[in-house]
């Protein structure tokens, strides 16, 4: 039996949250949050139609292949899943994507990227973690680099970023480092998010608000 009213359907969806509240907390307008719901519905129904994004659905949306694994896609999924229940609800999706909005504060982007690289969640990016990430990516690519070259790249990075020379990069060092090298935050901004209402015009049909701005 289908839903007769889209609003009732949405509010009975697990993890759904009021777009007005989400817009107030994030870099998005109400219209943009509603357009994001169209994207969310598509991703969250791609394998299991339960109104939640499972890891396989997230991977399918990123790689167009649910079986492909990637260290960073896993890490990003875990960071989006801030309730730590193994799935991403609509509120988590919007709040997390907000960091990637062109208008989001740079400090939020810097903090998110730090948490992404802090694989073991120790509060530091450690030398071994950084090498592990480089090796994981090399494994997934056709690029071959000798261990000496990898060591050299990691050493040079630590020479520049680890100002305290204690073998780990803390959040303050990370902030100073990326402010010197803003290109490292390139992946933290998604220009698409500014045009999300154009990408999902169907949100207008399902809008809950008369005037969304």
């Amino acid at each position: 039996m289908g839903c007769f009213h889209s609003k009732i359907c949405r509010f009975s969806t697990p993890g759904y949250e009021d777009p007005t509240l989400l817009a107030a907390e994030t870099a998005f307008t109400v219209s943009e949050v509603e357009a994001l719901y169209e994207l969310f519905k598509k991703i969250s129904s791609s394998i299991i139609d339960d109104g939640l994004i499972h890891k396989e659905e997230f991977q399918l949306a990123i790689f167009k292949n649910q079986n492909r694994r990637d260290l960073f896609a896993d890490r990003i999924f875990d960071l989006f899943d801030f309730k730590r229940n193994g799935v991403i609800g609509f509120g988590e999706f919007v709040r997390s994507l907000s960091v990637f909005h062109p208008n989001a504060p740079v400090a939020d982007k810097i903090a998110f990227a730090f948490r992404l690289y802090d694989l073991r969640q120790t509060g530091y990016i450690e030398r071994e973690e950084l090498k592990e990430m480089v090796l994981a990516l090399l494994n997934e690519s056709d690029l071959i680099l000798s261990d000496d070259i990898v060591e050299m790249i990691v050493d040079k990075t630590f020479d520049e970023a680890d100002k305290k020379s204690d073998g780990k990069i803390d959040e303050e060092e990370w902030k100073e480092f990326v402010l010197m090298k803003p290109s490292l935050l390139k992946n933290m901004t998604l220009p698409y998010l500014k045009d999300i209402t154009l990408a999902f015009p169907s949100f207008v049909m399902n809008s809950e608000v008369e005037d969304s701005e």
């Binding site: 990637d70 896609a73 690289y117 480089v134 790249i153 090298k181």
Partner: peptide
């Protein structure tokens, strides 16, 4: 050539490029 490990990671990891979420929408 990459002289910076983070530059290498952000350039090489397709899992860190969320723009693909919007492709084929």
């Amino acid at each position: 050539p990459f002289y910076n490990a983070f530059e290498f990671i952000s350039s090489m990891s397709s899992g860190f490029d969320l723009s693909s979420l919007f492709e084929g929408k």
